[in-house]
Structure formats: structure tokens, C-alpha cells
Design a protein around this nucleic acid. Sequence first.
DNA 1: TGCATTTGTGCCGCTACTCAACAAAATACC
DNA 2: GGTATTTTGTTGAGTAGCGGCACAAATGCA
Lengths: 420, 420
Amino acid sequence: MQNRGVPHTTTSPAQRVPGRDRPAVRPALDRGRGLLGPALALIHSGRAPTRSVLTSELAVTRATAGAIAAELEALGLVAVDPRPSGSGRGRPSHRLAVAPGGPVVLAAQLHADGFSVALAGLGGTLGEPVDRPLPRTADPEEVLRAVAEAGARLVAASPRRCLGAALAVPTPVTDSGGRALAAMYLDWPSGTPVRDLFAAAVAGALPGLPTAVANDANLAALAEHRHGAGCGARHLLYVTSGHRGVGGALVVDGRLHTGSDGLALEVGQLTVDPGGRPCPCGRRGCLDVEADPPALLAAAGVTPGPAEPLLEAARAVVRAASHDPVARAAVDRVVECLGAGLAGMVNILNPDRIVLGGIHLDLLAAAPERLPAVVAERCLWGRSAGVPVLPAALERPDLTGAAELAWQPFLDDPQSTAAG
Amino acid sequence: MQNRGVPHTTTSPAQRVPGRDRPAVRPALDRGRGLLGPALALIHSGRAPTRSVLTSELAVTRATAGAIAAELEALGLVAVDPRPSGSGRGRPSHRLAVAPGGPVVLAAQLHADGFSVALAGLGGTLGEPVDRPLPRTADPEEVLRAVAEAGARLVAASPRRCLGAALAVPTPVTDSGGRALAAMYLDWPSGTPVRDLFAAAVAGALPGLPTAVANDANLAALAEHRHGAGCGARHLLYVTSGHRGVGGALVVDGRLHTGSDGLALEVGQLTVDPGGRPCPCGRRGCLDVEADPPALLAAAGVTPGPAEPLLEAARAVVRAASHDPVARAAVDRVVECLGAGLAGMVNILNPDRIVLGGIHLDLLAAAPERLPAVVAERCLWGRSAGVPVLPAALERPDLTGAAELAWQPFLDDPQSTAAG
DNA sequence: TGCATTTGTGCCGCTACTCAACAAAATACC
DNA sequence: GGTATTTTGTTGAGTAGCGGCACAAATGCA
């Protein structure tokens, strides 16, 4: 690209040469970057295993695809393997893959039971995650410092260059201020500036690293879209429940739909059973209290131990449903509620695929026919739509999603990986 | 642009010259078209009144903006007026406006009481609309032929070149097949291929004209976003009810969010009052039966005359609310239901603006404090979100929206206006 | 052993921009 | 009223990114 020299050289009016003139606005730096980003995204998510597929996916000439692949290889991000790629007539195409020793990002996650960190390269593969309990304090600053330090140890132990860090948190995060609105499991006050606090913590442990923070369900959706059950979907609705309440996320054309301030897909307030259980919001039968692990436990009459994770206790109920009629009835009831909630979302969002995580994944496995049927029945154009409902496919969707978030700037502009 | 010659010259293998070679895929034709489209869109929606604003909105250099403006002027789409544009220091910028004698499109609309057609230039201004009752037959082919013929008369009477035609229909339309799913007011069977039928009708009356068909609420939302109360919103939620049922639409970053098959924003099935009126869907208290004109009439105990449009009758109830306690109570009740429905959408979509049309516009005028308050109360992050709720600003939003739809291909690629 | 088919590559050209310098048109200040 | 300052329009040179083309390479099939 053109040499733009040093930006923002504060030329005071006095010392300014008369004939000298600067553009009214700094032209958008991200224009003309062209197809490098889309190409890397295709290889990253495994949708371009060969150069010829890349050519057709990008809708460019073979010459252009070759130049792009060569540049990504020069950046150390992609490995081009000229060995034949197997069957078919004609000359076999070169294989494209993520460069094995390429840069990594630091993915981190806060959840009800602790925190996790892992390194992640391109391609959606995680390194061995480190899981730790939360420090006894609830002070966000201290928690995030512990996360950053655990991450820094991972980074120091790896020979690969680290380009960024991102954190998944179990609360909505505002786009504008990066504030956590309802970090219930963490006992944080509403409005905690988690984005800034994480940035500060990482700046202490790993200076210079760009950071980002987002909601865990949103990130899991992104991960499922790129590397899991949502791969290839144009409009992916992801719904999950791992502890209390129900989280949703929507991926449209490969991008998260976070709404105007990151608060979209707060689906827990959908009414799914007008005569149902009371909800903290004041009404009855909200999805939040009818389709999460506590709802399933309550319907089955099970009281979990105080130290037992709610998700594990609820999974036990689903497993018991194969022989225990009480558990079966509980599962059936929650499946009806979940289906009604999903139908409500489908009427508004019209996704072409639904992926379920958390306890919903188990419920789908226990009612693989009934759950999609409920959705279709209660959905306005059920028969014409017929949305497929799939189980999530990733082992650690939240961590993988955090990695996606950290990778995003470099997927948008692969050249910038060279800067660090 | 490059000369691509005649497309699809079916070179049979036999007659193919050995050294001759065609690209694996036809490269995307719309790449490299650059900023002409965005520039025209800015001028079209009034967001670039001068060349200097265009420069900063496009984030290009003055030279580029000048070249773009000159090209749009050469295409006969934009008028550049070099006269000064008023106040401020420095040299005044040239004014940019839609060319007065430029091309037009044909906008058409089917509604409960008839059909309308109008010509529309760039800039969102409609010519005088022609309103007609529906032919006595319910045969879609015949209805659409009448529409096309009325349109053809308008086109013939105008000296301006017509580039395309689009139709707004009061039913969801599938993206894939262009089929009407629930044209209740028109007595059309579900699945009527309205896109193809309209194309055929227009081909008969105005050969060669490109056509398009979409849902009326969606198009009204698009129109409000570009020329009305939604101008400048990033995520615009539009909700309206002109006859029976409630229609919604979402505009994200200037594009309609139609979902994977055009069926998004079917918001009528949201439960807003669990103990409310029965709905054809089998449940109670759906938005469709609680916040449309018949709901308001029923709450007020009014039975409209058989020939009276439902919207007008409902408007009379809202007007009566200032002095009639029964009407006031009816309005209050429907306002609560509408607010609950809007809150449900806000929780899922997190728009930064809501615009109301149809009877909802009157309800907002009658309860300008209460309606936004209900939304905020029932919305999960009400206080932090505080979504503004505004009345629609256009006189004929559906027709204006149909014009937007017809213009869209030319806004995306202004060069193609020269082809016709 | 050819031949059709598919892919990789180098070279040329075009397009849509940026950059840089200058000219023009207004306001602000003395 | 004249001059400096600010903002804008204009022109010409330069360039990144991509398409078009011709040819070479690598496979399967007859």
C-alpha cells in the first residue's frame, strides 16, 4: 500500500508551508485491502481446503487466488502444500492449510465455576486449556489480573508469537462502554467496566497486546458458526444455558448481530408458558425460568448439592429420563417450553439453522424428534421454514469464541499481523 | 471497466481454440465498482447535501469525491450546483442534489382497499399517486395486470425514463421463490408466486423493465430509514398495523434484515397478554390480536361499518379518547399490549430506534409518554437502553418503500442506469 | 500413447483510488 | 479596504489490486 508517512504530524499553522495541504479527512485505511481478509477467513474456517476452492469461493481468477495464497504464505499464516490433493480429473489443486507454527492469540473465559485460558492458532484449534477456580475475592480487578497472569504464563511458555487476547464473560457487555450489565455469577456490580479492566490487566502482564471482551453466548455462537455445527449457515441462531437463564446469539453473514449496543438476543424474557413459574421480572413463564438447568431440576423435583454445578445436575436428570418417568416428564415439559421459545425467536429472526448448547444440547439429544416438531408447530411458517435444529459441536465453544474475537482484526486485515 | 465481451458464448469443446482458456468462475461483476454506489445512496437519502460532506462521509480525498460527483452528473442522476452553499468559513462547497429530470421507477402497492401506483425519482419523492379499487376478481394474475397497466399509463405520460418497477404486498414474501404466504386481504392462496406473476404482468405492459416484489412493512421500514423518521439509525425497528395483524421490519446498516427466507420480523405471535383475546394460532394474547385496529375497536366496543376501512375506524377511536373514557381505556389497554410487544422485540433485536406506523402511530400520539415508558419498563435493560420511539414521517411509506426496492440495483451500481 | 480436463503462473492492462501541489472563493482580522 | 486564513475544487502523476490472456504442468480416460 501507499506510504502514508507519519500520521498526525501536528503542523502548527505558523510553520506550515503555504503550498502544503493535507486531505480533509484521513482516507479509510481499510479500503482496498481487498480479498486478503476474506481469503484468510475461508482458510481459517476450513471452507477453502484447496486453491481451486479458494478461487471459486472468492469468485476471482486463478491468478488472483494464487497471488493471495502466496501473500498469506509470506505472512506466515497459511501453508501452501503443492502435493496433490487426491481424486478428480485434471491437475490436482494445491492444498491450503493454516501454518503450523504461525502466531496465536490468548483466549480467556470467566464462568460460574472459575476461569479458563488457552492459546489458539488459526483454524479454530485450541491449545491445552488451563482451568482455575476464581480467586476468593469478587473484586473484578483482581479476578482479571489472575486471568491475565495465567494467560501470560501460557504465552511465555509458547514459542509462537501472540497477537491479541480476548475474554468471554457470562453477562451482556455494552458495545459502547464495554460494561458488564449482569455478572450475576461473579457478584460484580452492574456497569463494571470489564473491557477496560481486562485491557489494564493484560497491559500489566503482556504489554502491548490488543484486547477485547464480549458475552460468552455471542462468542460461542461465533465459534460454532466458523468451526462447529453452524458452519456455512447464513443466519445462525445459537441458544444455550449452562447455569442459570438462557443465552442467545445470532450470526448473520459471518458477523455477530449484537444490536446497537451489544444487548441483542436477550431472549430470556420471552413468555413461553403464561401459567408457568414466576420470574424475577415479575411475570410468569419466561424462557429464563422455564428452560434452564434449575427449571429442569425443579420439574424433576431434584435439589442439587450446594457445590454441584447446575449444568451437571441437570444433565443427570436428562440421563435419568430414559428410565425414570418423573425425569422423563420434566424433560418433556422443558422441551415444550424451549421449543416455544425457539419458535418465538424463529418468527422474529428467521434463521436458517439453530444450534443448541449447554443443557439444551442434552435436551435435543433426549427429544431429537419432538423439539424440532415443537418449533415447527409453534412457528408461523413452520412447514415452509422447517428450521434444522442441531447440537453444538465444539468442546469449548466459549474459549474458541474468545479466540475468534481476538483473531477478528487480523482476519479482517491479515497484513496487520506483520506489524507486531 | 474491462470489456468482458459477450457473456456465456457457448464454446463447444470441438470449436474451442487449444490455447484459449476461460476463468474457472465468472469473477464477481460487482467488485471494483467502488464508491459510486455508496455516494449515490448518500445523495439519494439527503445525507450528502454538499461535495465536502460527501468527501467526509465516504472518507475519500476531495479529488475522488469530485470525480465521483462528476461521474454521477454525467450519468444524469445528480445535479452539481456550483453556487455557494451558505455560511461558514472558507470556500463554500458545491451543492449536490438529485437531477430534476433524471430517471424514475414505478412504485406499486397492493393493500386491503385497493392498489396504488406512482412514479418516483431519486431522493424519495413520489409523483402524484394513482389509487384504484381492486378489480372484482381475486385472480392474482388479473389484479397484477391491472396494476401493471395503471403503471404503464403513468410511465407513458411521463417524459422521464423508467428504470424498474417494484410492488409492495401485504403478505410475507419468500426470498427464494418470491411466493406470497398469507395474502389474507386479497384472498390469494398461500404460495401464490407473486414475484413471477408481477414480473409477467409488467413484461406485458412495459417490456424489459426489471421488477421486484416484497412485503409492505419491510419496504415501509426501508423508506422510513432512508427518507423518514429512521434516517441515520443503525438498527431501525419499524412496527405498523394498517388493517389486521401487526407487521414488523428491521433495517440493519441500511439493509433490510429479511432473515434467511424473507420471513423475519413476523412479530404478530409474540405473547403480550397471557390472559388476552384468543388468536387464530390457538393461544391467547398474541400481539396480532391485541395491537391491531380490530383489537382497538373491540376494546372500545365499536363495530365498524362493513365498508369502512379498519384503520380509519380505529383512528376515530383514538381521536375520541380525548373526551370519551371508554375510548381512553381502550387506547390505554392497547398501548400496554403494544409496549409489551415492542419490549419483546427490543430484548431480541436491541435496535437504536423504533418507528411506528399505521394505527400505532396514532397510539403513540395519544400516549407519547406512556408507550415509551412501557417499553422501557418491560425491557430487560430498559434504563440503559432507553430506545427512542418515533412516529413514522412519510405520507405513503409503502409506495416510497417500493420505489426504494426498485431503485436498489441502481443505487448499488449507478453505472447500470446507463444501460437501459 | 494421445487427448480432454483442470490447475498453476507470468505478463500486460485497466480501474479506482491516493498523493501532492496549486488555484479559487469565501470569512476574519487589522 | 487589504491581507491572512480557512476551506474547497482541480489537475497530473503514481500505485495496489484485480481481470484477461496465453502457456505450462499434472492428472484421468480411451
